[in-house]
Simulated assay, not measured.
Amino acid sequence: MLPESSEPWTPLVFAHRGSSRRHAEHTLDAYLLAIEEGADGLECDVRLTRDGHLVCLHDSRIDRTSDGRGRVSTQTLAELDRHDFASWRTDLSGEGLITGRRGGVLTLDQLLGVATDAGRPMRLLIETKHPVRYGGAVESALVQLLRRYGLDRPDPERPLRVTVMSFSANAVKRVHQLAPRLPIVMLIDVWSVPSRIGWLPPGSTIGGPGVQLLRAAPELVERLHRRGCPVYVWTVNEPDEVDLVAKLRVDGIISDRPAYVIDRLRDMGHRS
């Protein structure tokens, strides 16, 4: 039985690929809506194009999320930008899909601009995908871009704060070597001895278990907390999932439905 606590608890709510139940994922509209809905932060995946640009895409291919075909890594930014990444989705959620404007691929550079211009403090979680054709060049390009914005280290004077995430321990290590002060999430989706005891690989400062893992091993949150590691959980969309992470008092909730999660937390007394 996990101990109850009377201490105030208000987790951060991150919009997973934007408000992606209402708009196509990784689109400008999805992120603008998430900001409007009051999300504390935004989450994105990044991949490198053939000409070295970081674009916000989850899959290695563009077939699912655009009207085009082919691998991200074999196309230039200009080639990707010819396709429509905004209007491909149909409403399967029952929540009223908002059909977005036709739009090309969203670059990380553009998303950083959107988050910076949010008009309030904002956080951005950036996941580097692996394995990929370009290996460690992804983390190198990412840190270079963050350095250009002055975001490669925490700065209380800046309204935007960045955290990097990955399922790859090697990627975590690379980011830590390139930007030692940058917070890093080690994403966890399998039940392993290290995750069972709350151990994270060197360089990572935050644990990132999937909500299904926490169903099987709720004690993982307490073990990570004992080691001084915050816990960000993905992808929390349903009422019972919100209730679970609330009971476990996680530090960050990553959701396709940020407005819904915020409203449920408010009803539970965890948001003002």
Rank of each mutant, 00 (worst) to 15 (best):
D40Q: 13
I98W: 00
G41F: 08
G41V: 11
E95K: 10
R71W: 11
C56H: 05
T49N: 08
L57G: 01
G52Q: 10
G96T: 00
I35L: 14
V55W: 02
H53C: 11
L57N: 03
C44N: 08
T65Y: 06
G38D: 09
E36V: 01
R89G: 02
L48R: 13
V46S: 04
H83S: 10
V55F: 01
R89I: 00
D81H: 12
L48H: 12
R50M: 06
F85A: 14
R50F: 06
G41M: 11
V105W: 03
D81Y: 00
C44L: 14
T99C: 05
D51I: 07
R101L: 13
T65P: 09
A86P: 00
R47Q: 15
I35N: 08
L92P: 00
R101D: 14
V105G: 10
L80C: 06
L97M: 12
L106G: 07
L97K: 08
D84H: 06
G100M: 01
A39T: 09
R102W: 01
C44E: 07
V72Y: 08
D63E: 12
G68S: 02
D40G: 15
R61D: 13
H53R: 15
A39Y: 04
D45F: 06
R89T: 02
R47E: 10
E37N: 13
F85N: 03
R102C: 01
G70R: 03
C44A: 12
T65R: 08
R50I: 05
C44G: 08
H83D: 04
E36N: 09
G94F: 04
L106K: 05
I62M: 13
I98L: 12
V105T: 05
T74M: 06
S73Y: 14
S93R: 06
A78K: 13
L80M: 09
S93V: 03
C56A: 09
V46E: 07
D51Y: 04
V55D: 01
I35A: 08
G103N: 10
A78L: 12
E37M: 15
Q75T: 01
D63C: 01
G38F: 09
G100L: 02
G38V: 11
S66H: 02
E79W: 01
L48A: 14
S93I: 02
D81R: 15
G41N: 09
R89A: 14
T65A: 14
S66E: 05
L80A: 00
R82N: 09
H53W: 11
T65F: 00
T74K: 11
D40L: 14
T90F: 00
L54R: 10
L80Y: 01
T65W: 04
R101S: 14
L57D: 01
L80I: 05
E43M: 12
T99V: 15
G94Q: 05
D45N: 12
L48P: 14
L106S: 04
G94T: 06
S66K: 04
E36S: 14
L92K: 10
L92A: 11
L77P: 10
L80R: 05
R47M: 13
H58K: 09
E37T: 12
G70P: 04
G38H: 09
G103I: 01
F85D: 01
E36C: 07
L97Y: 11
R89Q: 13
